[in-house]
Design a protein around this nucleic acid. Structure first.
Lengths: 342, 342
DNA sequence: TTGTAAGCGTTATCAC
DNA sequence: GTGATAACGCTTACAA
C-alpha cells in the first residue's frame, strides 16, 4: 500500500507552502495563476487526492446527504432515488442511503446513524408505522435541513414535497363513479400516513358529492404486501354475496394483483369490476386490460427534493419559504375502468 | 448551533485523560470497569457523538462501502440493494450509492468519487457499455476489495457473485423447444456483458443440442429500453411474413411488454407464440397469461455480496479463496409458455 | 490501569 | 500573493 500524496508533498516539490497549495487547489482568487497551474499540474502528475476526512474535520461540513426511505425495492422508490442521486451527484454531494423496512424503530436507529455521520442534510419518507418523530429533533435543533417527501408529517417544521393525494383520490373515485360504479371499494394503507389518509378522504368526498353512502364494508386497510392483497381479495372480497363493481387501489401493484385474482375467479374487468390504481408504474401497462391509474412521477419528485436541498445548502433559495411543494399528478384512463365508451 | 461534545469535554468533567475516555468508549479491556461506566454514563448524559471524520482521518478507515450500479430504478436492482443495505447496515457500515446510468464515462467518474471518499470496499455491477476497466485499478493497487455482481468481467482479479446465466439461457430455450417451438427468438442486451452473452450462448447450445439451426433473423440485441422493445416488436417482428413461435426475452419487463404488444396485434400467447422471460419480477405474475421466467433472487444476491465483503473487511474469510460465487436460479413455468399440458 | 504527546491532512487566521 | 501556525477530534506508541 503506497503512501498517500498530501498537500505537503506537493508543497515540498514546488518549494512553496502547503497553505498556498491548499488555496491553489481551491482556486482561491489571490493565488498567482502560474502558481496555480504548477500546483494543478503536479497534483495531476502525482495522482493527488484530497482527503475528505481532514477537510470535513476542519470545515465541519461533510458534503453528504442522508436518505431514509421505507423500502428500496419498489419501482416508485427507485425512481425517486434515481432522481435524487442524479441531482445530488451533479452538485458534488454524496448520498448515504438506508431503509427503515417500514418500522419506526429502524427509522430511529437510521436517524441516529445519519446524525453521527454528520450529514449536511436529510431526506426522509416515513415508515409505515412512524407515529413519534422525536428522532428528527437532533437535526432540527442543530439546523440541519430535512426534506420529507411522499410520506410526510405536519408535526415537524420541515420542507415537504408531495402530490395532492386528496385530489388524486377524488379524481380516481369520481372517474369510477362516472363509469357508473355504484359500489366502489378502496384498498389502502395505514391511515395515519398522509398519503393514504388524503386519498381516502378524496375517495369519501367523491362518494359524498355523488350522494353515494360510504360503507365500512367497502373499505380495506392493510400493509399492502402481496400476501395481504391476496387475503383481502380471496378471503374477503370474493367471498361476498354482493360483489363490488369498482375498486380504487392505492398502488398499481395491488391493483394489478387484484385484477389478476379477479380474472382468475372468473370476473370480467372492467365489466364486472372496474379498477383504478395509483403511481403509473410500468406494471399498469402490461396487464389485460391495462390499468387506469394516477400518474405519480417519482423521478421528478426525487429531482425536486434534491434540488430544493442543494439550493438551500449552497445558500441560494430559502427552504423556509417553500415549506410545501405540491407536484402535479393526473389520472390516466386505460381499459381497466372504461365500461362506457364516452 | 450548540458546540459539539468531544472526548475532551468528557475527560475534563471526569478528571481523567482524553485517552482514557477514548479507550473506555471503545471498550478497551485495560480500562477499569468503573471508569468505563462513568464514561458511558456521562457520554449518554451529554449526548456525546463520536466524530467519524477525526476517527477516519486517524485510522485511515471509513466504515463506508461504495456501490456503483447501472441504474437504481429497476425492481431487480432495488432488491439487490435492499439486500446489501440490510447486511451492511447491521454490520455497522455505511453505503454510498451511485448510478452509472449505463455509461462507462459516468462509471469512471463515480469510481473516482468513491476512491476520493476512501471507501473501504466497492460493490459494482457494470454499465451497459463498459469495456475498459482501468478505473478500478486504483482500488486493486491499494488493496481495496471489490466485489462484482450480476454484470461482471473476467478481466479483473476480483470476487464475483453471479448466477449461471448459460444454464439459465439453456433451460429457458430448452423449455420452449420442449413446448414444440421451432422458431425461437431471443431478445437480449449487449453481448459484451457476461449476463447477456452467457444467456445467448445457452440459447444457442440448446438449439444446437436439438438440431435446430440458429438464425440471425431470430436474434435481436438492443438496450432493452421500453422504446427499443416497442421498435423490435412492432417494426420488426410483427412485420414478418413468417412469425416466430417462441420468444426468450432477457428480462421480464421486455417479456411482459412484448406479450402485451403481441396480444394487441391479435396473436395468442402461448398458442401462436410462447414466451419466457427472466428475473421473476412481480410483473411476470400479473400479465395474462403469466410469464414463464427464470427465478433470479436479487435480494439474496445482495445479501451474499455484502456478507462476503463484510467477512473480508472484518478479517474473517478470505476473499481470494472464493473468487466466484454462483447462486441458484431455476425455471418457473407459467402460462405464457405452456402449449402442451404435459 | 492510566496519562503524555504526536500525528492523521486540511483550512482559517493572522501576518508580512 | 504567500507563509507560519494553530486547530478540527480522534487514536496510538510509549511511558509511568
Amino acid at each position: 500500500m503506497k503512501k498517500e500524496i498530501t498537500i505537503y508533498d506537493l508543497a515540498e516539490k514546488l518549494n512553496i507552502s502547503a497553505t498556498t497549495v491548499s488555496r491553489g487547489l481551491q482556486n482561491h482568487p489571490a493565488i498567482n495563476i502560474n502558481t496555480k497551474k504548477k500546483i494543478f499540474d503536479l497534483a495531476k502528475e502525482l495522482g493527488y487526492q484530497s482527503n475528505k476526512f481532514a477537510s470535513s474535520l476542519r470545515k465541519q461540513k461533510t458534503h453528504t446527504i442522508g436518505v431514509i426511505v421505507p423500502r428500496l425495492n419498489s419501482l416508485f422508490m427507485s425512481s425517486v432515488l434515481s432522481g435524487i442521486e442524479k441531482v445530488v451527484n451533479n452538485a458534488g454531494y454524496n448520498l448515504i442511503i438506508s431503509q427503515s423496512f417500514e418500522q419506526e424503530e429502524k427509522e430511529k436507529t437510521n436517524a441516529i446513524t445519519m446524525y453521527n455521520n454528520r450529514v449536511d442534510a436529510l431526506i426522509v419518507s416515513l415508515s409505515y408505522d412512524s407515529a413519534d418523530f422525536t428522532h428528527f429533533n437532533n437535526f432540527i435543533n442543530k439546523g440541519i435541513p430535512i426534506v420529507f417527501f411522499d410520506r410526510v408529517t405536519d408535526s415537524l417544521p420541515v420542507t415537504k414535497v408531495v402530490i395532492d393525494n386528496f385530489k388524486a383520490g377524488y379524481d380516481a373515485t369520481m372517474h369510477l363513479i362516472e363509469q357508473n360504479c355504484k359500489s366502489i371499494m378502496h384498498i389502502t394503507g395505514n391511515l395515519t400516513r398522509n398519503v393514504y389518509k388524503d386519498r381516502y378522504e378524496g375517495y369519501r368526498k367523491a362518494l359524498a358529492d355523488s350522494y353515494i353512502p360510504f360503507s365500512d364494508d367497502l373499505f380495506i386497510t392493510n400493509d399492502l404486501s402481496e400476501q395481504e392483497i391476496y387475503n383481502a381479495v380471496t378471503n374477503n372480497i370474493l367471498k361476498r354475496k354482493q360483489l363490488p363493481d369498482g375498486l380504487f387501489a392505492t398502488n398499481d401493484s395491488a391493483a394489478a394483483y387484484a385484477l389478476t385474482l379477479f380474472k382468475e375467479a372468473g370476473l370480467k374487468v372492467p365489466e364486472d369490476i372496474a379498477i383504478v390504481g395509483f403511481n403509473n408504474d410500468f406494471i399498469s401497462k402490461v396487464t389485460e386490460p391495462a390499468i387506469t391509474t394516477i400518474n405519480y412521477p417519482g423521478n421528478e419528485m426525487g429531482e425536486n427534493v434534491a434540488r430544493i436541498l442543494i439550493n438551500h445548502l449552497d445558500g441560494e433559495g430559502d427552504l423556509s419559504l417553500t415549506s410545501t411543494v405540491i407536484l402535479n399528478s393526473e389520472l390516466i384512463v386505460r381499459g381497466s375502468s372504461l365500461k362506457s365508451k364516452v
